[in-house]
Design a protein around this nucleic acid. Structure first.
Lengths: 227, 227
DNA sequence: CCGTGCTCGATTATCGATAATCGAGGAAGC
DNA sequence: GCTTCCTCGATTATCGATAATCGAGCACGG
């Protein structure tokens, strides 16, 4: 891994910049479609151009930004088409994760998963969409970690940009509570250590919201109700 | 895309270097585990350090090399464990591709796929392992392209490094002819435009060789026979 | 008034040089 | 004899500056 934050050498400008910029993207300070100008970042952080470029290239590999030669970097705008493309890919990956995780999951991990569901419930009550999404992602990530397949985990993580964008499209169409509670069957299947069932539940979980998101109109329809 | 070779500006040092270095890795000139020293590459191609570093970082995102801060870049050594991890991931992706491609495949594409099978047969007769692998990969890639899901294609391509490494481990255990002919049922399913069947065939195709490769011993066992 | 080509400011791509870091090997201390 | 510390060559990480490229806006000709 050239990435794991576990190592001590926390001081590499490129990595620090990557994290800072990523945080700013996720916080919406850099809006989708907005340009990120190297010279501006340079001055802001008082560093040279090279580490900025490399940090941006890392973010490109993570699919958070896109770049064109001589035309710079901009925050990726995830189209509805790309989101639609994501669902079958993610559904397949989640099924693999569920199958692999079910036979080896520990009681401790099951407790962690329940914690995330509880956190989602709390956030849902507070109508905190952002927090729900964070714990939702963490719930799935725990399962992928449990699956103990480094490649699978890495591939799933490469979809973070798309998963993150779900909030933009989905929040109006599906109730937060429904999202939260739909995780319960997954946890139950894992509790039973049933690989086929866990895989099936995870696949359905993803496909369900995929079909909801793109059921009504095929074309690009803005959020149905702004609230 | 910040990658597609379709654009005209073919002259960007970073990209040229990336292709050159990748070719040298695939040709085995840079052996797995071997270091790639920036200063050496610099002098060899008469360029500066920056584009070399960025090209290497691209290769890292493609999983062909790995890098550690202050310790440079080395060609990734794909362990047998990592290969084992790849099979379920790839099987799931191939199933998605088969399902998506079957309903939309054209007669022209079917002809291309048959061409690749014929090329594999010819290479197999000539005992040209490398050529078989190339056409094998191309066969699958055509199907992923047909599936018309950019994200799916990109994720699959990120596994190239692992797929490529199959040659190291697999050639002794499975006959070339068997590999080649196992593609025929896939083509047949696509001819029938049967999504479920095409997906199933592609999944089985991968899982079959996966189970073959790791059936005998669970532990890390080097290639059974060096030839 | 519209299309064409040119100039110019802004930005990226690349360069050459410097600073920071690593790992190996030897000297010093126990 | 073994461990610890230090030095040194090699390499990576970063810097500051230059060259190449792009896109917008303006002058010119039709």
């Amino acid at each position: 891994m050239a990435d794991g934050t576990g190592g001590l050498p926390r001081a590499v400008l490129r990595e620090q910049l990557r994290e800072r910029l990523l945080a700013r993207i996720l916080d919406g300070e850099f809006a989708p479609g907005e340009r990120i100008v190297e010279s501006r970042v340079m001055k802001e952080y008082g560093v040279s151009q090279a580490p900025v470029r490399e940090a941006l290239r890392d973010l490109e590999a993570m699919r958070f930004v896109e770049s064109f030669p001589h035309r710079g970097v901009r925050v990726r705008m995830i189209s509805e088409r790309e989101l639609a493309e994501m669902y079958p890919v993610r559904a397949a990956l989640e099924e693999v994760a569920g199958r692999a995780a079910a036979p080896v999951v520990t009681d401790g991990t099951l407790a962690l998963l329940l914690d995330e569901i509880e956190a989602m419930r709390a956030a849902s009550s507070a109508d905190d969409v952002h927090a729900v999404l964070v714990h939702d992602a963490r719930f799935h990530e725990i399962i992928f970690e449990t699956a103990d397949n480094a490649l699978l985990l890495e591939v799933w993580r490469s979809l973070h940009a798309e998963i993150r964008a779900l909030v933009t499209y989905n929040r109006a169409r599906v109730g937060l509570a429904e999202i939260v509670e739909s995780h319960v069957p997954i946890l139950q299947a894992l509790r039973e250590r049933d690989p086929a069932l866990a895989g099936k539940q995870m696949r359905h979980h993803i496909e369900h919201f995929g079909s909801l998101a793109f059921a009504a109109g095929g074309a690009d329809r803005p959020t149905a109700r702004p609230d």
